[in-house]
Computed example of a mutant assay.
Amino acid sequence: MPTTHDRAPLAFARPGTGAFALAIGAMALVVLASNILVQFAINDWLTWGAFTYPVAYLVSDLVNRRFGPGMARRVAWIGFAVAVAVSLLLAPARIALASGSAFIASQLLDIRVFDRLRRGLWWHAPLVATVVAAVLDSIVFWGIAFAGTEGPWLTWALGDLGVKLAVGVFMLLPFRLLIGRQAMRPALR
């Protein structure tokens, strides 16, 4: 297992067409669902979108861990394009624009932070990357989507961020379970 001091270049597996399509489909589905669900408030401080969106970081981190940051960026860009195109049909343009801007900025940050921390403890990279990306995502999304409108959007932003962070921590369990088999294999070099 590489240590934080081991800086030899990593070699990553090449995804098959099915794995690549699955990652893109999962990413697009998560973003689309979140764009729709963010329009439905649970109360004055939370929308349903907060529960689905952190799964995008799980998808990104799994692709990054297995196939590397280049493939994770490719999945993010294609998932972004598909999700925004469909979101423009199903959600208001302002939501689609805010979501797309926040998504790509936060995903690229998540991928970069994850890649920088990947050689440490298994949970460190996905946790730190998700936290910093979720903060950026919330600032960009809520600043574009609802700023200047009526309603409790600032409390929704804070509530959604809190839930995104909590769900992001919870996503460590599926991350660990899904990378578990990879962890038992010899390190790829």
Rank of each mutant, 00 (worst) to 15 (best):
L127A: 13
S138C: 11
A134C: 09
W142A: 10
S99D: 08
A134K: 02
R119P: 06
D110K: 09
Q107A: 14
I104D: 06
L127W: 10
L136F: 01
S101M: 13
I144D: 10
D110R: 04
P126L: 01
A102H: 07
V132C: 11
D110G: 09
L127F: 12
S138E: 02
R116C: 03
W122Q: 09
F146V: 08
W142I: 06
I144G: 12
V113H: 01
D115R: 10
A105R: 01
A105I: 15
P126Y: 05
W123H: 06
R118T: 03
L109S: 07
L121V: 00
G120D: 09
A98S: 14
S101F: 07
A134R: 04
G120Y: 06
R94L: 07
A133F: 04
L97R: 01
L90R: 02
V140A: 13
D137N: 15
L97A: 14
I144F: 14
W142T: 11
L108V: 12
I139E: 10
G148K: 05
A134E: 15
D137I: 03
A96Q: 02
A91T: 14
A125S: 10
V128E: 04
A133P: 06
G100C: 08
A96H: 03
V128Q: 03
G120V: 09
V113S: 04
A145G: 10
L109N: 07
L121A: 15
V131L: 13
P92G: 06
A96D: 08
D115K: 01
A98L: 13
I111R: 05
S99E: 07
L109V: 15
V128P: 02
R112V: 00
A96I: 03
A91N: 03
F114Q: 08
Q107V: 04
A105T: 14
A147I: 11
F146M: 15
R116V: 15
L127R: 03
R118A: 10
L117H: 05
A98M: 12
F146G: 10
T130M: 08
L121Y: 12
L117W: 04
W123T: 01
S106R: 06
V135C: 12
I139N: 08
L127N: 11
R118S: 10
P126T: 08
I95L: 04
I95K: 03
A147D: 11
V131D: 01
P126H: 04
L136W: 00
F146S: 12
I139H: 07
D137L: 10
G100S: 10
V128G: 01
D110V: 01
L136G: 09
A134V: 00
R119S: 12
G148W: 02
A102N: 11
I139G: 11
P92L: 02
D115F: 07
W142H: 14
F141H: 07
Q107Y: 06
A147G: 02
V113Q: 05
A105Y: 00
A129V: 03
S106N: 05
R119F: 08
I104C: 04
H124C: 05
G143V: 13
I104L: 15
L121M: 02
A147R: 13
V131T: 13
